[in-house]
Design a protein around this nucleic acid. Structure first.
Lengths: 195, 195
DNA sequence: CCGCTACTGCAACTATAGTCGCATTATGGC
DNA sequence: GCCATAATGCGACTATAGTTGCAGTAGCGG
């Protein structure tokens, strides 16, 4: 192993090129050869180090999850979830991170490695996002013992469902409804394992 | 156009081979050449008539949605939704229809045609499934004006989210929770457009 | 500064997806 | 039954994904 110097520079160049390619051509047009040309790193080097597009997406996704992002806190669960859902929606239409997550979801259908990376990514996301539920518990807004991860899943699921399963547009009303359902269900204590 | 005779036989053979291939090799291993070999229809013919795997999946998906399936009626919204969700879960692990829908979801990331077919498929599914909500309205279980399609989306979304987005296993407890949240939200009137 | 070797570049190679022109077959109207 | 032609079969072709052997470069310990 020799992680420094040129190897590190190549890693940066290749992952950078991967993000740019995803932003312009999308997942369908993602090609190792094109990434090689854009990054200046030879095709065979990329295949040797990452194995293919699934490996590139997996590492790119893992990197994007290493940040120290925290969900915004507004003082009420409903508005917290609303802000979270708006961020998710925008995240998938944004320039840089969006195409990576979308491509990773697509790649997970073809590659076990990408599926594993995707799983880890969302486990991390759930944990970070669940903070807003902890705050709601602390405020006495929802019952103690409420499963924050489950609340987050329930809130975001309809958004992803519309985007990638039923392929329906996501409107502000849809976001509002998803946040409200998750909020009211939390208040009602539906997300308490020992109810 | 000359839809009868050999053309019809070829259509059956090719779509049948597509389903079999999906069941054995899955979407990642789906190839026009392999379908051509299995069906006995020449490769170029398949490309000319369906354009590629996305066209095959689109028509196969459209065909699977033409049945006269109706959701089971148990007499209460919660158990109706529970039965519906169990069917959805099993549907994606069953032998024949499951791989088609899974493959169509995957193909929708790469093909606008597959995305359109997928959209139509789920619009139809929502409409059929919403019958259980209509029955609940008739029983006075949920408020009149409740949007049945929205209830169905809310109920099934967490299942699809776990299966294809966060890549988490789907347990009976998850199904139960999803059905309960959708039921309680319906009773609370959250799915009434004019609340 | 020097040498070992991990890493990379290069080019040729195989395998397969998809296209195209042309000959052949079989359908549906008469 | 017969014909016009839609549909298909066939094979050769191009393009591209991915692999491999070999030579050259550069990181890192001495």
């Amino acid at each position: 192993m020799r992680p420094g110097g040129r190897t590190a520079r190549n890693t940066e160049a290749v992952l950078e090129a991967t993000l740019t390619e995803l932003g312009t051509r999308g997942y369908a047009g993602l090609t190792v050869e094109r990434i090689a040309t854009r990054s200046g790193v030879h095709k065979s080097t990329i295949y040797r180090r990452w194995g293919g597009v699934d490996g590139l997406l997996s590492t790119a996704l893992a990197r994007s999850g290493t940040g120290s992002w925290r969900p915004p806190q507004t003082g009420a669960l409903h508005t917290d979830l609303l802000a979270l859902l708006h961020r998710v929606t925008e995240n998938f239409t944004s320039e840089r991170e969006g195409p990576v997550a979308t491509a990773a979801i697509a790649a997970a259908f073809e590659s076990a490695r990408a599926a594993s990376a995707l799983h880890d990514f969302f486990v991390d996301q759930h944990g970070r996002s669940a903070v807003v539920v902890e705050a709601a518990i602390a405020r006495g807004e929802v019952p103690a013992g409420t499963d924050g991860r489950e609340v987050v899943r329930s809130a975001v699921a309809p958004i992803y469902y519309r985007l990638f399963v039923s392929r329906e547009p996501v409107t502000d009303a849809d976001v509002e409804l998803a946040a409200r359902v998750a909020t009211e269900a939390s208040i009602a204590g539906l997300f308490c394992p020992v109810d």
